[in-house]
Design a protein around this nucleic acid. Structure first.
Lengths: 342, 342
DNA sequence: CTCCTATATGAAAACGTTTACATCTTATAG
DNA sequence: CTATAAGATGTAAACGTTTTCATATAGGAG
């Protein structure tokens, strides 16, 4: 591979000059610039960004840590991050934690070894040692989705408690009294836990009892949502409405209900969380709590770059709460007491 | 930031030794290893993979080029790529071309500057200069989705012509005679073009005339599929069935039909391409041509690593055609001639 | 024509690793 | 107790940039 030296020799200039035509073309005569450019062409020169990174200590790369790129809610925010970063001439290294904290730890370290300049992090334990280590080392990062437990940590996301609350309020306003929840395991995801907190808060506010048997914690997959339905409907007093902590689980649950012949929303109401694009298209269209994922990614990256620029930013700019919206569609209906024949 | 030198000084050994405990712990006494490890701890040493990359000329990074991570078909294969790469200790830089060839060109160059060791490339012009340049420079890469025009280029994907053919055959077997196609613009995507080729082939085989007015080329978005429906249904002789070159367009089209009150599949049949996970859940569940996206990504990366290892691989191993499957669901129905009243 | 300034260029050190080669230890065989 | 081999460690160059500082050149004022 041709290096800057080869180009320099060929153009009969010094490496410094070559470097200059690459980085500060204005600081070089038109004539030399020409010479250097043709020399580059001639030896098929390709710039080595690694060497640059070593020399300048700026890799022009940031890291993205998410549970799973396949979840549309994360691919959307990823796209938001990428678009902002690419506008700034940065690249992005993407890793998936699969909600596994050990993996998260390992990957964050690897990313730091790769000299990413900063991190957009979806952590599953916002009070955990990963975040702690980052703070200790003053490593630039911004959290998305999960709220920081530490003061001063940059963050963009929605209020998950409020979201869970809203979802449950809707169901209660429809006269449902036994409301189940299918949630991502709390040990895996703090967000899921927060949403559950909102669910409980709504129950309490409305004087409804909390029945732990009605909430099933599970893993992230369509099929898990399906399975959860079996469990819930096997109960002596099954729920008449279900709040799912994400749309994937909700979609799985819908499938589960259809399979046992329960009609949605007539016999069972469902509300999801995330409002991924596809939820509009399922049958019936899923009512869900909308999160502005793309915007979250974009904004988070915006803040990350402010952090990188070392311009002191007031902390208030560092914590952005975007609004969730209740996207009401057709998966929920009022509850009517079944007439018991006998 | 602490470097290997700092560690060396602190542990009272040479940098070579430190490097050895990192890379070849077996080549170092237990005692020194201990010393070095504690020294690392003590100064909070973090390895610099950039410097390693410069020194060894191996960045342990590969590049992924796809049109858009938000499309589930691409996020699935991305995950396949990542999983394989991460098993090999590699990271992945991800870029989106948005089906823009200029962007593809630019991004491939940037990726090479970042010293990625190889590329998994979804190109929109498999005969274009991007691929050409890669070949010329003997840069390791494997194509996915789009078939190479050049011999010897590694590839994993499905037969798009056959896929388009199958989709159309299904519709024809259901007695449809006017079959439209909503396709991603051919200038944007070679795959879309290939699928159209299959569509035409099926028409021809069954003695059906090809009517260019029935195929609308558009961009990648739900709304574009919706718009296309308007166009098609405004025709004097509108189609009774539609083949969409991807599921996103198909979903958009379904929405469009619902909006003008056309019932699917009774009044209009639709088949998609890709069979993304969500297509099972829409109403009615979408009949689609299934592509094993995760597997494609995985296999492509497997091949890429063979290429990287420079072990000569026989060319046959380099071209993998996976099978498409026709996932028959409920978006297609037999065509019955409408009784014309007057 | 000379002097000064502004601008263009060059030399060399630095960035943090790896690694070939040299050197020093240590253990073992004789 | 010495010679030798094997193993542990160290030295220094190399990887391909950027950047500071020094130097050369050109242009304009006097």
């Amino acid at each position: 591979m041709a290096t800057i030296f080869d180009v320099a020799r060929r153009a009969d200039v010094s490496v410094a000059t070559v470097s200059r035509v690459i980085n500060h073309p204005g600081k070089v005569t038109e004539k030399t610039r020409q010479k250097v450019n043709t020399a580059m062409e001639a030896c098929g020169y390709v710039y080595n960004a690694l060497a640059m990174g070593l020399s300048t200590k700026r890799s022009r790369t940031i890291g993205i840590v998410i549970p799973n790129i396949i979840n549309p809610i994360f691919s959307e925010s990823t796209r938001g991050i990428q678009d902002y970063a690419s506008e700034k001439g940065y690249h992005v290294i993407l890793v998936n934690t699969d909600y596994l904290y050990e993996k998260e730890k390992r990957l964050v370290n690897l990313l730091r070894e790769k000299q990413v300049e900063g991190l957009v992090l979806t952590t599953n334990k916002p009070g955990g040692e990963v975040v702690h280590g980052l703070i200790k080392d003053e490593f630039p990062f911004v959290l998305i989705y999960s709220h920081p437990k530490h003061p001063g940590v940059a963050f963009v996301g929605v209020d998950n408690i409020q979201g869970g609350f809203r979802a449950t309020e809707l169901l209660i306003s429809l006269k449902h009294r036994r409301i189940g929840m299918i949630a991502l395991d709390f040990s895996l995801s703090d967000r899921s836990y927060q949403r559950w907190l909102g669910y409980r808060r709504s129950l309490k506010k409305n004087g409804l009892p909390y029945d732990p048997g009605l909430v099933v914690q599970t893993e992230y997959a369509f099929e898990k949502g399906e399975k959860a339905v079996e469990l819930l409907m096997g109960l002596p007093h099954p729920p008449t409405a279900i709040f799912c902590s994400n749309d994937i689980l909700a979609l799985g649950a819908m499938k589960g209900f259809k399979e046992i012949g329960k009609r949605i929303p007539e016999e069972i109401s469902i509300v999801g969380f995330d409002d991924i694009a596809f939820s509009k298209f399922v049958a019936p269209p899923l009512t869900s709590i909308h999160q502005p994922a793309y915007e979250m990614g974009w904004k988070a990256t915006e803040i990350l770059f402010e952090l990188l620029s070392k311009i002191p930013v007031q902390a208030s700019r560092h914590r952005i709460l975007l609004d969730t919206e209740l996207a009401v569609r057709q998966s929920c209906a009022p509850f009517f007491k079944k007439k018991v024949k006998n």
